[in-house]
Amino acid sequence: MDHSVPTVGIDVAYVAGLARLRLSPEEIETFGNQLEQVLAYVKKLEEVDVQDVVLAGEEKGFQNRLRLDLALPELSPNEALENAPQQRGGLFLVPRIIE
């Protein structure tokens, strides 16, 4: 495997922010380097001719699979809230949402 100089620049902190991952500076650096390697590797996909490719689900003769509008049993509020890290008054409690 060619572990040479990375060819793509990734803003790891930005991506980690999108994914709501709080990374240490050490992780940002390590992951950054590893991701650069992986991305350099996946560049080889550019060699493939993908003109006129029909993607899955776009083929002809495809049938819908939909659900009829019929009610199914729900969980009880107790069951629903059983796993909540915090709950009160039938609600899931979360840190304050700021709009």
């Binding site: 990734i10 790891v12 991506v15 980690a16 999108l18 994914a19 709501r20 991952l21 709080r22 990374l23 992780e27 992951f31 590893q34 991701l35 992986v38 991305l39």
Partner: peptide
């Protein structure tokens, strides 16, 4: 951030980062 940082292992974080990117 901390829930996901403390909760996920390194390989999972690596893959989430790659996929997000």
């Amino acid at each position: 951030g901390r829930t996901r940082d403390e909760g996920f292992g390194r390989e999972v974080k690596r893959r989430i980062l790659l996929g997000t990117y």
